Simulated scan of single mutants.
Amino acid sequence: MIKAGIIGGSGYTGGELIRLLLNHPKAEIDFVYSTTRAGKKIAHTHQDLLGQTDLKFSDSINETVAIVFLCLGHGNSSKFLEENTFSDQTKIIDLSNDFRLQQDSVFQGKTFVYGLPELFKKEIKEANFIANPGCFATAIQLALLPLAKEGFLKNEVHINAITGSTGAGIKPSETTHFSWRNNNASWYKPFTHQHLGEIGESLSSFGNKVGKLQFLPNRGNFPRGILATAYNKFDGRLEDAQNLFQDYYQEALFTNISEEPIHLKQVVNTNNCHIHLHKHEDVLLITSVIDNLLKGASGQAIENMNLMFGLEEGLGLQLKAGVF
């Protein structure tokens, strides 16, 4: 069994990671570290785990665990690693944005590989340290990677995406309060969202020119999920685009191309990404949907763990959406 430690397990991504690891046939939780909830039962914080575990949050770490998941706020993972050490055999998956960009990927002699399996599966299998992609970044990259590979993103790319309230984290804020979010919608960080950097680096990794990414993120009045739409000039037929996407994702376990229009409920509570293509005149519209807490965070982290340890990629991730 793979002994796993979790740093910062009281938030949404930490809670989902605990749920997945508790049900993983080849992994077990060694500790869940928390500075604010040490000694308290995990199920008191994550009430969906009542009856599933008697584990308590810990105020100490085990330096020799096989893998550590860092579920900390952005900027805190690097601080934690500066103050704590693990064995040379311990693998690390960071779910923050601390190590996602190439300029930040080397830290304390550790080289973090960008953990998007649909792009870097070979590198992930050989890696000891993973920078898990952002949620918006995952949905948008999966919508655009096949076009980037073939050099079809030379023109300006327009992207609009809406995310559920869990994407803002568990700490209450003005725009996550129920009375504000309910029956409401708004945009934020227009054209400047922090995930643009990692998206741009991935799309440029094929060596082809990529036009400017015009990204407008939106807040939705639902808890979880991301629906992203992107459109760009495309001179070929719709069938050409569909074949291009099918070829690119033919070996992708969790990314599926749908002939019918897609919606969020198809992927919520799963590690799947669904993609649909629509052609209007010379414009190709790509729609992608994911669960921001699973394929956009904890589920993808488990997928990366499986690859790093030579396990079946989908182990522990056989999850079904609830569409009604």
Rank of each mutant, 00 (worst) to 15 (best):
G200V: 01
F136Q: 00
T111S: 13
F222K: 02
E281Q: 07
C71T: 04
E28P: 07
V65S: 03
G134E: 00
T13I: 13
F99E: 08
I226K: 01
L145V: 11
L196K: 08
I286S: 04
G5M: 01
V210P: 03
Q250T: 12
S58R: 08
G207F: 10
I92L: 11
L315E: 15
R224G: 10
L294R: 07
L311G: 11
I6D: 00
K209W: 05
F31H: 10
F222E: 06
T287W: 00
P217E: 05
D94K: 05
Q141E: 10
A241G: 01
Q102S: 15
I286P: 01
A185L: 13
L311P: 07
T166A: 11
N132Y: 00
Y114V: 04
Q89F: 12
H263Q: 14
Y12M: 10
F215K: 03
F215H: 09
D104E: 14
L21H: 01
L315G: 07
A143H: 03
L49R: 12
N306Y: 09
G220E: 05
K26Q: 13
N182S: 15
E16G: 03
L277C: 04
L17Q: 04
P133R: 02
G15N: 03
H276G: 03
K121S: 13
A297S: 15
E150A: 10
I162G: 09
D30R: 06
L319N: 07
